[in-house]
Design a binder for these strands. Structure first.
Lengths: 207, 207, 207, 207
DNA sequence: GTCTAATCGAGACGGTACGTCGGGTCTTTGA
DNA sequence: TCAAAGACCCGACGTACCGTCTCGATTAGAC
């Protein structure tokens, strides 16, 4: 249950309005606690206590700890990645975008939050769909924008399965992030991913 | 506390020996319960009850629910994928291997078990390492065997980053499996993945 | 905290005056809810909802659920017992008064309300005093009036401890009402009580 | 739900047996807490904490706070009143018995416990029946024994309604105890009660 | 006709306790 | 020593009420 939005018609419902202060305190406490201990050891009780808030004020607006943490990390960091400005080389753009994303995920707090969300998503199909919309889909759109740019520049072939390609690219990252391998998701890895995929993506040069 | 007997072979500790029946009953109950409800709703108590076993008989041999479920699914299915017999076309082998793996994971029970394990792994770094060894690493070895075969056949370039390539290939699957996207991990997807990567992998034909 | 009464000097305070409709709706809802479920399960929230009233409108005028229910039952029934008209036989009057009182308390709704108030009184000394004034004291006055009448008629000895006697008479009822015994508080019981006490109360006949 | 009794057949059920230490700690904590604060403010949580016991160990053996407190006070005090030894004057015995009972109930801790139980009984018909059996009925038996003695001595008339008489006698006490009146339940009151009832109870002297 | 003041319905708020569930340990009897 | 049974301590769960608080809206007398 994402936080309610007031109708665009600006109609105020009766009764005491929701406290923005309380909302922020809860989100902040959630991020802080996920940062300082295992996600599983972060209880709703603890979040409420840390935020100096009644438990009901959490349950009133979020359906589960996962929903809350998703909102918390979305506001805290996930929505903070600024869009890429395209250059004259779409392959360079792709590599740069991946490197920025990898760097972003190398932040320990962010990584911990995202891991928790992925875990939750595996245990709850509905939440998995929410998470896709809020996290994975956003990244897909970013890639797609680069693809479009590549088409315009004539660098990218137009007969590839865009979805498969996007999943291949992202999958490289998520595999390293989630599997437990010790291989890093760093700039070199981004470069390698692009290097491996480039021959399959680019328009033939001698035409 | 090993016994003080000198003979390294045939070491029998004193007391009643472990009951194989009990062990199997526990593993079977674990698989059955994970199949019929959410992993989170499978309690140790429930497993013990379903297996008609005391709780202590679980805690004596496994450190956590995750360890138990990992053992349970390893015996039940994960170790059941027979090895690929190589053909004269390494790319075809690669595609076939992926298709077999995808098909394997399309089994609902297996998928549910693996999802649970992945979830657990995100919340516990130690278990993540265990899971890597038992699941991901096994698949990497399979891929690597195909790579070797491709080198021998002269189909595969030898100057690629093998790890990056393997992670790219597997990542494609795991992304679709874990992210919540509705795009399937079917035969066509396996074909598309190979098609996209082939130009970056194969030795140039006119040399 | 009983409901505020405007000063007798007809001083009107400024601002919106108290709504009599609201007051009645609350009292009615209280009686209705106590009738249809256990007193403990009647929450202030529920009363407010049933009366279509804000919770504050209850807390503004009553200090607690007990105070409210006491007011509610006082208006609903407790103040509805008409006074006894004395006859020429004070013992007959006494018996009649008891029978009327017993009959009154045999009403299920009244019984439920009174039980709730007695319960509350045991847990709160202050409320116990209030309840004494509003319920028990009223009955004592009724008895005392009969005693006076008996003195005038020369039927009652004047050297008895009036308080002890009144408590003995009432106690008989309250014991049966409160203790959980299945013996009824009916007309026969009233007759029996008077029969047992009469020898100790009446003036000796041969003097 | 009163504490389970082991079957008379001395068959031991399997599993860890109930801990007598734990049982006592809970009962002691219950009495202590009821003594030191309002019954309503004694939470099950607090009892568990004071007894250094898990909440479940309370809920496993008692169905409600009331059941627990009833057991606690029964063991602590209610069953501690030694039986009266009859003398040659049944009226004196009656007075003495009442005085002992009144004195017993004048103990502040006992009074607080009993008040709580009476309150609970008013709100729960089932508990009311339990309480009758455990508290009121016991007292009735005591009175009845005195009555029997009085019959044998030829002091008591045999044509009175024993139940009505017993309820009248006890009612006198309970009225003063429960109603909130400030009149005490002391030795003088016991004497007065007997004095008032004696003429209605005793056999005529000149027959 | 504003202005002041108290009321009203509505409902969010910080709290406390509830009764249940599950985790992991301990203590029995019996094999 | 292992096993089944089940009681134990612990702590989190999600819910229900408590009594308080803030809203906009209403309703009077005072200015």
């Amino acid at each position: 249950m994402p936080s309610h939005e007031t109708a665009p018609a600006e109609k105020r419902s009766p009764g005491r309005p929701r406290s923005e202060e309380t909302r922020q305190a809860i989100l902040d406490a959630a991020v802080a606690l996920v940062g300082e201990r295992d996600y599983r050891d972060v209880s709703i009780d603890a979040i409420a206590a840390a935020a100096k808030v009644g438990k009901q004020s959490i349950y009133r607006w979020w359906g589960s700890k996962a929903d809350l943490v998703l909102d918390a990390f979305t506001e805290h960091s996930l929505s903070r990645m600024p869009p890429l400005v395209p250059s004259s080389d779409a392959f360079a753009d792709l590599e740069a975008d991946l490197q920025r994303f990898f760097a972003f995920m190398r932040n320990e707090l962010v990584a911990k939050g995202v891991r928790s969300l992925i875990a939750e998503a595996q245990l709850d199909a509905e939440f998995r769909a929410n998470l896709y919309e809020r996290v994975h889909h956003v990244r897909c759109i970013a890639l797609r924008r680069i693809f479009e740019h590549g088409y315009k520049l004539g660098q990218f072939r137009t007969d590839v399965d865009e979805d498969a390609l996007a999943h291949l690219i992202h999958g490289a990252f998520w595999y390293r992030f989630l599997s437990g391998t010790e291989d890093p998701y760093d700039d070199a890895f981004a470069r390698e991913v692009v290097r491996l995929l480039r021959p399959g993506m680019e328009t033939s040069r001698h035409s």
